[in-house]
Amino acid sequence: MSPREVRLSTTPSDEAIADLRLGDVVYLDGLMYTAREGVYMRALEDKANIPMELPSQSAANFHCSPAARINPDGSFDMGAVTATASFRFAKWLPEWMAKTGAKLIVGKGGMTSKDYKEYFVPNGAVYLSTVGYGTGALLGRGVESVEAVHWNEELGLAQAMWVIKCNKMGPFIVASDMNGDCLFERENAKIAKNVERVYEGTKPAVLKRYGESDDRRDEVI
């Protein structure tokens, strides 16, 4: 069975978001900006003014650094576009969503259902995962134009805030919904049934590590 395909605006209505189901394949239209740890720290910790009108211009935050260059004449060349793992940004996302009204968090690997229930659902937001990972060329084709790049002097090209115009950019997979359910956790639960069988006969390492015991008064032998 093929997944359902959906075209979605980067400033989506509440109804459009509510209609999304886990595992749907999404293609995006409209403006999307990249923001990851560099942008979050600059905007939230250093209190720099965000150089866009959010969420009216875009409600889609892409955890991404593109393979791109700024030409001497100020124009841009964007080649491949892929996401970076999002779980590392949980620290900043609640405040970022409150500040920017982001409705679509786009990245790699999703967040936990706890994150979804605590601040995605209350903000009317869902998570879209890139596919693969590494459909960089396909996503690059969906970039109609680069509208701007902000903070590249301060943060470097990889951490800068790139503003891109999407034209049927995709595929992305819906990884959370308005129940706060998590696609990846659903799949983990299915796979968990095999774990005992696969590990049968193997044994724990002779030398343990901290992390396997979180009590630092313990020894690791």
Binding site: S2, A67, A80, V81, A83, V131, G132, G136
Partner: peptide, 29 residues
């Protein structure tokens, strides 16, 4: 698997797109 089949097919499309466009196959170098 429905979803993993979809992913593999998308990756195969991606390799083609990269060669056709002469652009990097993945944004993360």
């Amino acid at each position: 698997g429905d979803l993993s089949s979809f992913v593999l097919k998308a990756m195969l499309d991606n390799y083609e797109a990269a060669k056709e466009d002469r652009r990097a196959m993945c944004g993360d170098t």
